[in-house]
Design a protein around this nucleic acid. Sequence first.
DNA 1: AGCGCATTACGTACGCTGTACGTAACTAGG
DNA 2: CCTAGTTACGTACAGCGTACGTAATGCGCT
Lengths: 244, 244
Amino acid sequence: MAGLATPMAGHADVPEVIWARPERTGRGPRPAFTRADIADAAVRIADAQGLGAVTMRHVAAELGCGTMSLYNYVPRKEDLYELMVDAVGAEHELWEPAGDWRADMLRVARQTRALMYRHPWVPALMSPVYGFSPHALRYLEHCLACLDSFDGTYGTKFELIAMVNGVVTTYVGNELATAERVRALPWSEEQENAVRGAYLGSQVASGAYPRMAAAFMEDAGPIDLEAVFRRALDRVLDGFDPSR
Amino acid sequence: MAGLATPMAGHADVPEVIWARPERTGRGPRPAFTRADIADAAVRIADAQGLGAVTMRHVAAELGCGTMSLYNYVPRKEDLYELMVDAVGAEHELWEPAGDWRADMLRVARQTRALMYRHPWVPALMSPVYGFSPHALRYLEHCLACLDSFDGTYGTKFELIAMVNGVVTTYVGNELATAERVRALPWSEEQENAVRGAYLGSQVASGAYPRMAAAFMEDAGPIDLEAVFRRALDRVLDGFDPSR
DNA sequence: AGCGCATTACGTACGCTGTACGTAACTAGG
DNA sequence: CCTAGTTACGTACAGCGTACGTAATGCGCT
């Protein structure tokens, strides 16, 4: 009556880690695809048409199979997302750390940022990340290797890694969301900026926000996103650096 | 033929900031609700049943009106989200900064954290935040007031505020997501931890991740989420503090 | 005073989603 | 060889955001 008798049923009544599930059990027809095939198809769609286009129907069509066949490989859509994140995790190039943890963590961050630019949907899927996929484990181990030269407990090291990942996800997520919003506007960027600027200006001019008004007076110049990102990381690393 | 002749049509073909739109134009029947009524109804639903229960149909039912009537007040669902975030922004209690920017920013962060615990759906809506709602402006101005004692340009102050908000959102978002996941499990938390732990243990025991293995050996003790949060903020503020 | 029209209200309908369920074809283990 | 467990997939359902059409409403202008 319980999950014992139905080993590979669509939805189990017992916890399951997708990475622990074997791809093939032996009985039954030979599966037409591997999990990697499915992940790749989903990644292709997300890269080309955005995360919103990743539906069970589209992925199935991309693979050339029926929609419901996907559920033999992936119990819920959430798991498909996990497959996607793990798949692009393979793109992380690891190296032999040379003993400078600050430089290494910065390099990790920049590489992750580049990866997110290649796959702009990644930040949106990073919040509900809870599993330890194979490539996530590989990535974590590499970060720990980078921190061999860091003087602290593993607890602190994990906090440092979490902080760097969090900042990268947040910053790049914002950068990409802004770019995406501009791309999807049904009108021109100039019109958008004009309307929003007019509203903001009218609010600030009301006198209710004197410091905001002063801030707008300050000579800003164009924003260099990469420099902002770099500064943010430097500061975060400063916060963990006892020698500073 | 263009948006000029249809001043209050459902969807404009010209940019629009919802906060600049007047609640009442004069002509036509008196609206049955204010924007605040709608925001409150949506917030009530989100608090009680989660963000997923915030649908146009449910909000309309909560207000006691037809589904499509909502679109007279809110052009798209995304704007409803913006109303919600602004509505809870009213809960921020502001104070007169006394000249210690570190203490004040920490207090801001702790207050925001408490607000997010009261409204666990807030972090999920913070990523696509782009508008400057009335309460967001009020909040920003207050942060700037807290930073009067901070020696730096407004540019740097905005970077500091963005960093603090980002860290708060990320950390509290993770805390809440974990709690929510546990709450929604179709099986017990012990079962879940046992299965995930077994998988993780088997991976680590494979020898492929020696540092992860060492980390598991380290005596950890229970995790104090509030202490982790506090440490993260201290470190971030350290990174901006020239006196340290 | 009363006409005209912008606005509100809302029922209906469409295309889309995730996925439960039933059935037929297939294949490895006993 | 038989049979149990698996794969494949068509059908179906509930729910979503929202476009559109129609009826009722009441302010502003003549």
